Computed example of a mutant assay.
Amino acid sequence: MSEVHILLVEDHLVVRNGMKLLLEAQPNFSVVADVNNGSEALEMLKDGLKPDIVLTDLNMKEFDGMLLIEQVSSEFPDIKVIVLSMMDCEQHVSKSFENGAKGYLVKNVAADELVFCINHVAKGGRYLCEELSMNYVQKSIDRNHYTPNLLDPQALELTSRELEILELLGEGLTNLEISKKLFLSKRTVEGHRQNLIDKTGSKNTPALIKFAVLNGLLR
């Protein structure tokens, strides 16, 4: 297996030293440099350092990892960036890949998965750690299995006209637009809308729409 040269970017010295020891214990890994922040990493790259992989944290006080990903992807496209972070929210993961990262790991990842990720990315692949991948899969399963609580409009004493107006409100139409579409006065539409709010116990129109979706009155 060919040697993989790694630039390690981590602002916590103890964590950085531990990561360095773990990585260098692998027969085909070589940590060519370890630095405190993204600015130091870029300086080394501009001075001619040519790692295969930049393994970086995101949350650093000076020149954070997200900016580093963007700069490396733009200025050194042959170098692949892998994120190793405590941040597990979808926004950070998506933004990292959008900026050019090739891998994303959370810091509680097992050593063998870290090694696999680095080797996989070094060969040209992309990788999202198992924990985050399964979280996304579970969310997808939950969404697919979600079924709203179906309410009978008659139980709320909703009239056919009120249901018609509710559907148009759900489509984003204003009172004036609904009045023109149904050939009603604006005041009449406002009256029906208020009846809908009162009958469903909603505070306002957005709350009414949310109630209608959750209870199967709108799709």
Rank of each mutant, 00 (worst) to 15 (best):
T174C: 01
L150R: 13
V9R: 01
F211I: 09
M87I: 10
A25E: 15
L182W: 08
K199G: 04
K181G: 05
E164V: 00
F116V: 07
S160E: 15
L150Q: 11
L105K: 05
E3T: 15
I165T: 09
T188R: 13
G100Q: 11
D78Q: 13
V115H: 10
L23K: 00
V9L: 02
D142L: 12
D112S: 12
S30D: 10
V32R: 10
F29V: 03
S202M: 07
L214D: 15
V15A: 02
V137Q: 10
S85R: 05
H92K: 01
K139W: 00
P153Y: 09
E113V: 07
G100P: 04
M19Q: 10
T200R: 07
I118P: 08
H12K: 09
E70I: 04
I209K: 06
M60Y: 03
I209N: 08
H92V: 04
E24H: 01
V106D: 05
D78H: 06
K123V: 00
E24C: 00
K186E: 15
S185R: 09
D64V: 02
D142H: 11
E131V: 13
L176E: 14
R187N: 12
N37F: 06
L214E: 15
D52V: 08
G65I: 01
S2P: 14
L150F: 13
M1L: 14
E24I: 01
G124P: 06
I141E: 07
V72N: 00
